Amino acid sequence: MKFLQSLRLNKKLLRELDYVTIIIAICIVTFGCINIYSATVKSSGDFLIKKQIAWMIFGLITVYFLLVFDYMVIENYAVIIYWAGIILLIIGDFVGKVNHGANCWINFGPISIQPSEFAKIGMIIMIAKKLDEFEGKINEPKNLLTLMFYAAVPMILIVIQPDMGMTMVSFFIVLGIFYCIGLKRKIIIGGLISILLLIVSVWNSPIMKPYWKERLTSFLSTKGNEATSGFQLAQSKLAIGSGGIFGLGFGKGVQFNSVPEKQTDFIFAVLCEEWGFIGALVLLLLYGILIYRLIKIAKESKDIFGTVICVGVVSNLLFSIFQNVGMTMGLMAITGITLPFMSYGGSSLLTSFISLGLVLNVGMRRNKINF
């Protein structure tokens, strides 16, 4: 009984919970489920949508358990969380399941997880812990080198897979944190130049397979390669364009059936064809409100640890949304990044809810509450 009582949220804390943020997240997931069902019902029946709903329920339960414990307790376990993520990445690199040429999945019986999704959360928590210990003094050389080390380890392991999309996400998470905490502009510019040189080196190394290069550059022009590397993008553009202003209606999408990975990476193309410009606008509006409220929590956080967690989560959301939507329209390289809370996938959805739970935890405890 005592154990069960310890898992109950105090009523005073519940009054501090941002219910609007939770409702918006659930709305986005529900919208995603509708589109996943529409995109897969003919090929898979209700199997995939049942799995997605199960992951949504599990994600919400995880959020609840995250809210029970003060996020400062999580800081005490930051080292364990971080290195657990690194171990998962190492296992994935050597014995992981290959998906589109990358060793980025680990099978646990019938369940497959993507280690990089969990490792990026561990990276955010670890960087937040270190910045809290450094009292936000990021421009001191020793502190900056320590932070760069903890950021570089998971990114190097993700590059080895190779998963360029998740590497980009991780990089922009770190960039967002460093910028918001106050890293000097000249250091940021120097770092970006160094990263550019690293990208050129990786691009010309054996790590980058020819088909990866073709896929990443196909967005520059699909002419002449519509049947090969440009097929996915060409079909996505047709799906988005055919939706017009109001869309073709639920279950009436035609073009998206030709889009590979339509329920995961290209769910936005499904949405646009069936719900049109209005549907896309509604989704982006929901994302905008969600991000605004997360930024608000970051500003109101009582400590550096909480602020950095929020900034890391917001950076992840912003870049993932921008990259995913952009690649479906040919504005960004195709990297396999999922659309948060919308795309099919247990690892993606669960880690999105974990990230949300962490930020909500920070928001709940932004003020001192007398019990």
Rank of each mutant, 00 (worst) to 15 (best):
N367G: 07
T40W: 08
G45E: 14
M164Q: 09
G92N: 01
G247N: 02
V153L: 02
F256S: 03
I195D: 00
L350Y: 05
V254W: 13
K50S: 12
S258P: 03
R8D: 03
T222F: 08
S44G: 11
I74M: 13
L290N: 10
K237N: 10
G288A: 12
L145Y: 03
C272D: 00
I160K: 11
W203H: 11
G306V: 04
L216Y: 06
I127T: 07
I245H: 03
C310P: 11
K186E: 11
K129Y: 06
I188C: 03
K184S: 10
K237F: 05
K237E: 10
F172C: 13
Y71G: 06
Y287I: 10
R15P: 01
K184V: 02
F246C: 14
E75H: 06
F268M: 11
V159Q: 06
N257R: 14
K302E: 02
T21F: 04
F231W: 08
G363L: 13
P206G: 03
N143P: 01
L66W: 12
T228G: 08
S44N: 15
T338H: 02
I28R: 07
N10H: 15
G190E: 12
I289W: 14
G244N: 00
I74T: 06
S301V: 13
Y71C: 10
G345K: 04
Y19P: 00
F277H: 01
L285M: 13
I199W: 02
I124Y: 11
V79P: 12
Q114A: 08
S343H: 05
S347P: 10
K129P: 03
Y77E: 07
I34T: 03
I278N: 06
E274W: 05
A84Y: 12
I26N: 00
L197N: 05
E273V: 05
T167W: 08
N139S: 15
F219L: 04
P162K: 03
G85E: 13
G190C: 09
T62P: 07
V313H: 07
G244H: 00
V311I: 15
M148L: 15
I291K: 06
M166E: 11
G312V: 00
Y287W: 13
C33S: 14
N204D: 10
I80G: 05
K142T: 15
I354K: 13
L294Y: 00
T307Q: 12
M327V: 03
L220S: 00
K97H: 03
A102Y: 04
T30Q: 08
Q232N: 06
I28K: 05
A102R: 07
V20S: 04
S320W: 05
I124W: 01
K137M: 15
L9R: 07
D132R: 01
W203N: 06
A152P: 02
P260M: 05
F319M: 04
I121L: 09
P210I: 04
D132S: 14
F277P: 04
T328K: 12
C272W: 02
G32L: 01
K11M: 11
A269Y: 07
F172R: 03
I291Q: 04
I61A: 12
N324T: 14
T21C: 01
K2Y: 14
F134I: 09
F266P: 04
G357Y: 02
A234S: 14
T40E: 02
T167K: 10
Y344T: 09
